[in-house]
């Protein structure tokens, strides 16, 4: 499992570059163009990221997460769910920037390589900003009803979160 992890990044990068070269693409130019685009999109999310990081830092300093965790820890312990990642689970379906702010707060508190930090990373990586996506896509064609979209999407998110907890618990 760990070996796959070590090889993945270099293999993907080299594969994509070689594939591009084989197709006669100017890979370096393409790379630079992408970097520019990446910088642009980082700058465009920076204000909302900043707002939410300030918000989440304040929320964390105010002791809200402790209150929340204390209140829900009996329920969490009963089902074996790490309570510390609960704020992430609540934030994730609503806002991307907000969940990244919470993730960063979790890393500051427990460490990125701790069990909690790793669980939170996998959780954030395997789920999406469900409500945001629903709002954007249905909004774009003027649909008000969503039928079974929300239950199905939330079930997917919950499955991702539970799988994240189990993966880190069993494989380290």
């Amino acid at each position: 499992m760990e070996q796959i992890g070590i090889y993945t990044v270099p293999v993907i990068v080299v594969f994509i570059v070689l594939f591009g070269a084989a197709r006669k693409v100017n890979v370096f130019e393409g790379f630079c163009e992408g970097v520019k685009e990446g910088a642009g999109s980082l700058i465009s999310v920076a204000p909302s990221l900043m707002g939410l990081i300030v918000g989440v830092t304040m929320l964390s300093a105010s002791g809200f997460f402790d209150i929340l965790t204390d209140a829900l820890s009996p329920a969490c312990e009963a089902v074996g769910f790490p309570c510390e990642v609960l704020p992430l689970g609540l934030m994730r379906p609503v806002t991307g920037s907000g969940s990244f702010a919470v993730l960063s707060d979790i890393f500051d508190k427990y460490g990125a390589d701790s069990v909690i930090g790793r669980t939170a990373s996998v959780m954030a990586g395997s789920t999406e900003t469900t409500f945001y996506a629903i709002a954007v896509y249905y909004g774009s064609v003027g649909l008000k009803k969503t039928r079974h979209t929300i239950p199905a999407a939330l079930l997917a998110d919950m499955t991702g979160m539970v799988s994240a907890v189990l993966c880190v618990r069993f494989f380290g």
């Binding site: 499992m1 760990e2 796959i4 992890g5 070590i6 993945t8 990044v9 990244f100 993730l103 960063s104 890393f107 500051d108 460490g111 990125a112 390589d113 930090g117 790793r118 990373s121 996998v122 959780m123 990586g125 395997s126 789920t127 997917a156 998110d157 499955t159 991702g160 979160m161 799988s163 994240a164 993966c167 880190v168 494989f171």
Partner: peptide, 25 residues
């Protein structure tokens, strides 16, 4: 974010992320 928080191996969660994402999907 992991890198910024000083993770030694920011990418070592990849296989878990894939597993959990596929199950979620």
């Amino acid at each position: 974010l992991r890198q910024a928080a000083g993770s030694v191996q920011p990418y070592d969660i990849l296989t878990y992320v894939w597993t959990a994402s596929v199950l979620a999907l």
